[in-house]
Amino acid sequence: MADNKKKRGGADRGLIALSEPYEVAYWSKKFKVTPAKLKAAVGKAGRSAKNVEAYFKLQKHKAADRARIAMSQPYEVSYWSKKFKVTPARLKSAVAAVGHSSKKVGEYLTGKKAAKKAKKTVKKATKKKRAKKKAA
């Protein structure tokens, strides 16, 4: 569908017309992407410039940390809970403490697990010592 050049209102400014080469060039330059990436983003997010901009921001954010734990996605909460062998509530508290990076959350959780194991080992050792003293 051709762009009506007489319409210059806000509704027209907020939409990306892929059929017009000058619009593809403008939006590609504005978002600092290739025309092919712009076309793919419009296919995924729709013609709205705001939606496409949000899509690109999300893609940049995902690229920064591919192993990011998105607590807003139930399937991710389930996946990471099973992977770290913790409850979703425990995972949520770990994410709140160290951030969304799975690497940092893993270190945080294993650090806590190691501390708990050390406490259990100390308790067992003291029980054995007490038992030996009573026997003697």
Rank of each mutant, 00 (worst) to 15 (best):
D12A: 12
A40W: 06
K103A: 11
F84G: 10
S102G: 15
K103G: 04
K50P: 02
K32Q: 15
K50S: 13
N4C: 06
A125C: 09
N51I: 00
G46N: 02
K133Y: 09
K134T: 14
K92Q: 15
S102F: 06
Y75Q: 09
Y55E: 00
A36W: 01
A49K: 09
P35R: 00
K120D: 13
K82P: 07
A125Q: 15
E76F: 05
A25D: 11
F56A: 06
G43M: 04
K116W: 02
A135M: 07
G111N: 10
V98Q: 02
Y75W: 10
K30E: 02
P74K: 09
K119T: 09
G14L: 14
A114V: 07
K60C: 01
V98G: 02
V24W: 03
E76G: 05
K7E: 07
A118P: 03
K62I: 03
T126P: 00
L109K: 06
S101D: 06
A17C: 13
A25Y: 03
L38D: 01
A17M: 04
G99M: 06
L15E: 07
V95I: 09
A64M: 13
A36L: 04
L18F: 12
K133Q: 11
D65N: 11
K112C: 08
Q73F: 11
K32E: 15
G14H: 14
